[in-house]
Nucleic acid binder design. Sequence first.
DNA 1: ATGTGC
Length: 476
Amino acid sequence: MTIRELEKVSDFEWVYSKRGSMNSDIRFFCSKEILESMDQAVLDQAVNVSHLPGVVGDVVVLPDAHWGYGFPIGSVAAFDEDEGVVTVGGVGFDINCGVRTLRTNLVYHKLSEKDIEKLAQRLFENIPAGLGKEGKIKLSRKELNKVMLEGARWCLENGFATEEDIEFTEERGRVGGAVPDYVSEEAIEREEGQIGTLGSGNHYLEVQVVEEIYNGDIAQVYGLFEGQLVITIHCGSRGFGHQINTDFLKIFRTAVEKYKIPIKEKELLCAPIKSKEGEMYLGAVRCAINYAFANRQVITHLVRETVKKIFRNVEVSLLYDVAHNTVKEEVHVVNGKKRKVFVHRKGSTRGFGPGKEGIPKKYLEVGQPVIVGGSMGTASYILAGTDLAMEKTFGSTIHGAGRTLSRNQAKKNFPYEKVVKQLEMKGIKLMSASKQGVAEEAPQAYKDIDEVVKSIAKSGISTKVAKLRPIISIKG
DNA sequence: ATGTGC
């Protein structure tokens, strides 16, 4: 497929119809400019995905899409429960990588430079960040089992969560069907001490200011106002989820031969949903999904403790927690009929519209909050899910800006000192565990988040609610 | 993303 072969549906929607041995159409939601700048690898990967057995509806490519392992990061594919497959490439290596935003009742302009300095320092001290970094909590085997089964709800019994935190987490912080028996010993060993830690790569903790409100009515429902200080956490299932995916790539290598699944490239190793191997992956992946919900919840507890020690009468409540690397069993209307499908969201956020089951009651009328994490030092956005997303993208939307340069290219072009200086000029305090990590995450290595958000808003897949500007950025 | 590469 080349960009020229795409058919224009509207200024922000393009389709490549099913042909040859493809099993579905491919639908892009973005401006012409973003489409034209898209890597050819994204188009090739989308075509490969559309060849997988049992694809339902369209393969969806979002404006933040970029080259990933097997699937583009920033894509969605749903599969039939009988004919379809589950894949590692469709989930992403960091299972349930996701974001949550915490509201505070602090107003930025009322804080002193000293307050901000102290906040940055204490958050950096109290929230472990960096590759292989361990936290303070060591889970016993029995407790880890509970985390795998109960997710963020495990935190309730241990004083790391409030009932409200659970209510405002996707899936209420726990998906069903987790089977700890399908998780390897190696994954369990790698978990040791990692709960409550940020990790590295694009993971971060940011203190941000609500800079602009685009939709006052929805912002009010979400409890957001201009000048408000908010805190956003971006991380996933750490070495635990990573090991589970590594284990299943090996298992799927034999599965594709055993079940004679024609895959276009080895990065799309998979197994039928209705097979022992598929059932095992789903059981294990759900353990990692639950682990990541608990991880973000423990970090929330650490953030809350830290902030409460610095400011008097401060309140820290959860706006919402969203996952953007998952495979989930959901009910969607496809060609006018309700049906169960397995939705792979790879670098894509669930963004359910108004009235859809699964959204907290408080947000039911306006659609769920979607948190779009900017790259380091750039704006983040709060969006709301729409009815159109339910119709066209299995209730899915963007997750971030999307890379334009590989980690290696970024390292060569944007050394640490340059990046820190650049952020300083913008008034952002950067606290980092690794210089190399900072170079890899240079803002110039990413697409323009404002343009990506504009594309998704104009296409009607999500509604713009608020823009967040970072003031403190803590990196792994 | 991750005990740097499935």
